[in-house]
């Protein structure tokens, strides 16, 4: 990759920030400070980072239940994210959504989703809007391996292919859908093989290699911006943490997980940057410290923020907020 030090360190920084956020979220959840469920993006950071480095602020994404990393890479404010995890009024969704429903429409995040594959039809619609408005924006729909077995996935691919919509389907194949291994429930070896049925390009890449993700998405985005239609990109990775924080993970062995820790994306990219002379130990430390500081500030902001007033639960059902919530 022939890129500037600034650009490469930018990728590294995004991954480190994402990791720092989720590591803290895990810790806080285990300490009983966060309600609800938390699905960690740890080990999958290269995908969101490599994808988002190709997007503009006015491009759209649809995220998943495992979406913290998508949010951070798209430019979300960690304070508002953390406050949402705490259920505080200062959170992105004013405490109504929580981890699984974080959204920031102002930066093009059309929502995380508690429903597996729930984002794919939404991304298709955003693609239609772009086509009708004749802009050169694109949409990226993130989804898991498990999601590729839902009808919504197949219907969305066919749809976007037929209308040639600027939608890039980014499959984060972390090899598990909760307790189920991908090969036990999925008819294809590579999820990208499914692109053939919908006459769109499909490619499988190493999702733990941020450069590979960046390069692949770059050409898909270029094609989409120029009216070339959708692409299916399968980024193979591994979910090194449980499905949710607290998952006993009885469905796999510890050894297997240890093996995959060796291939996690941040350490790998760090090594590569060092070999390229693009990252010194001192720079690395600085980036890590800054990320940790940012997370600590977000935690403090959240802890200092109040919970929403109970009656605020009745707001936000409609724009016309005149008594529909009661």
């Amino acid at each position: 990759m022939d890129y500037s030090k600034e650009f490469l360190q930018g990728l590294y920084r995004t991954m480190v920030r994402s990791r720092a956020f989720d590591s803290k979220a895990e810790e806080l959840f285990l300490e009983g400070k966060l309600p609800g469920f938390i699905h960690l993006y740890i080990g999958e950071e290269a995908i969101a980072t490599g994808v988002m480095a190709n997007l503009r602020k006015d491009d759209y994404i649809t995220s998943t239940h495992r979406g913290h990393g998508h949010m951070i890479a798209k430019g979300a404010d960690m304070k508002k994210m953390m406050a949402e995890l705490y259920g505080k009024i200062t959170g992105y969704c004013r405490g109504k959504g929580g981890s699984m429903h974080i959204a920031d429409l102002s930066i093009g995040v059309l929502g995380a989703n508690g429903e597996v594959a729930g984002g794919l039809p939404i991304a298709s619609g955003a693609g239609m809007a772009i086509k009708l408005k004749k802009t050169d924006q694109v949409v990226v729909a993130f989804f898991g391996d498990g999601a590729s077995n839902r009808g919504a996935f197949h219907e969305a691919l066919n749809w976007c292919s037929v209308y040639k919509l600027p939608v890039i389907f980014v499959n984060e194949n972390n090899q598990f859908a909760s307790t189920e291994r991908v090969q036990e429930t999925t008819s294809v070896q590579n999820i990208s093989d499914r692109a053939v049925s919908y006459s769109i390009p499909g490619v499988t890449i190493d999702g733990n290699d941020v450069s590979a993700v960046y390069e692949t998405v770059k050409s898909a985005v270029e094609r989409a911006r120029n009216g070339g239609g959708p692409t299916l990109i399968e980024a193979k990775t591994y979910r090194i943490k449980g499905h949710f924080v607290g998952d006993p993970t009885l469905y796999r062995g510890k050894k297997e997980v240890q093996e995959y820790w060796k291939r996690e994306p941040i350490g790998r990219f760090e090594k590569k940057l060092k070999e390229m002379g693009m990252l010194t130990d001192k720079e690395k430390e600085n980036i890590k410290n800054e990320a940790e500081k940012e997370v600590e500030e977000a935690v403090k902001f959240s802890e200092d923020s109040p919970f929403p007033e109970p009656v605020s639960a009745l707001q936000d059902l409609f724009v016309d907020d005149t008594g529909y919530g009661y």
Binding site: P35, G36, E84, G87, K88, C93, G95, K96, G97, G98, H101, F307, P308, P310, V311, S312, A313, L314, D316, L317, Y324, G325, Y326
Partner: peptide, 16 residues
Amino acid sequence: ARNVHIPFSPPLQDFV
């Protein structure tokens, strides 16, 4: 339940 969706934050859920 009140005529809204089940919100995330504990005091909101308790209210609804």
